[in-house]
Design a protein around this nucleic acid. Structure first.
Length: 291
DNA sequence: AATGCGTGGAA
DNA sequence: TTTCCAAGCAT
């Protein structure tokens, strides 16, 4: 697997079209790249940018964050969503400080063992921070490969082994080229081969795209999961945690009861937050972010 | 393997 | 207004 039919075109496209993102700066530290990757899990770039800046100013190294209570990470996470990621990023900082001499590990398997670091993030950090050769398969790349190679509009809902094998077969041989391919094909998916209204006129591989060549057949199969939010436990959890994030001090139960009427659901959500480690029930009956 | 887990912007 | 979806992970 030394090359693939698209790599030259994608690499050239990336050279002139890449966004100037701070975690892509030549002097970006592995830690700053890891922080960006955790934040970018399911949160758009535009919302991550200011949060990442503030985070890196406050905690420039893993040791800086590891010194703080995990609740400070949850508070700093603010409204990025999925706040368990903040807890896991804090746990990453502790593990890196205590087990890896304060340096983000470069080995893929070691990265994978860190809290909140899965297959994608381990490959991304190994590739972007350390220039290694890995298949970096995120939602953008899955969509590009579904279209260009498989000829379908959208990839399957859950990642398949076939997709992984395909992605691996396309990784260029030399690590430095592989790393640029990884970021380039991801950027192509983010900017051109988008989920809705792909900009095929601007696509460097449009001439080789199986989906476009087939006339862009519409998505076949069940409609793609419409996620409801209003009224869910997720919404309740969000409201409860927002109260604690914005409070300077531990809050009485009344303050939490005020944000959701359904007591059964409210208790279930609060219990969930406690068992996740996002909320600390104090002995005096009040609640706080974890210390 | 399917589900749960936040939030906000765009169409 | 509603729907979609945005660099996933853990269980």
């Amino acid at each position: 697997m030394s090359d693939n039919p698209y790599s030259t075109a994608v690499l050239a496209w990336y050279e002139t079209n890449a966004r100037d993102l701070p975690w892509r700066a030549p002097d970006a530290s592995p830690w700053s790249i890891l922080v960006s990757e955790i934040m970018l899990q399911q949160t758009p770039v535009v919302r991550v940018l200011p949060a990442w800046q503030a985070w890196m100013e406050r905690w420039p190294t893993p040791a800086d964050l590891a010194e703080e209570p995990s609740g400070e990470a949850v508070r700093m996470w603010n409204r990025l969503g999925y706040p368990r990621r903040a807890l896991r990023l804090h746990a990453c900082a502790v593990a890196i400080t205590e087990e890896h001499g304060g340096e983000v590990p470069s080995d893929h398997a070691t990265l994978l063992a860190l809290p909140g670091v899965g297959s994608y993030t381990a490959a991304a950090v190994a590739s972007f921070a350390f220039g290694q050769r890995h298949a970096v398969l995120d939602t953008n790349v899955r969509r590009v490969l579904a279209r260009a190679e498989t000829g379908i509009e959208y990839p399957p809902k859950t990642q398949t082994k076939g997709e992984v094998a395909l992605a691996e077969s396309l990784v260029p041989g030399p690590p430095s080229v592989a790393a640029r391919w990884a970021v380039g094909v991801m950027e192509l998916g983010a900017l051109v081969c988008t989920a809705r209204s792909p900009k095929c006129a601007d696509c460097p591989i449009a001439g080789q795209c199986a989906w476009r060549l087939a006339g862009k057949p519409a998505h076949d199969g069940p409609p793609r999961r419409a996620q409801t939010y209003a009224g869910t436990d997720r919404q309740v959890r969000g409201r409860l945690l927002a109260v604690l994030r914005e409070a300077e001090h531990p809050v009485p139960k009344d303050a939490l009861d005020a944000v959701w009427d359904d007591g059964v659901q409210r208790e279930r959500a609060l219990d969930g937050l406690v068992s996740d480690g996002l909320v600390d029930p104090l002995d005096d009956g009040r609640f706080a972010l974890p210390g």
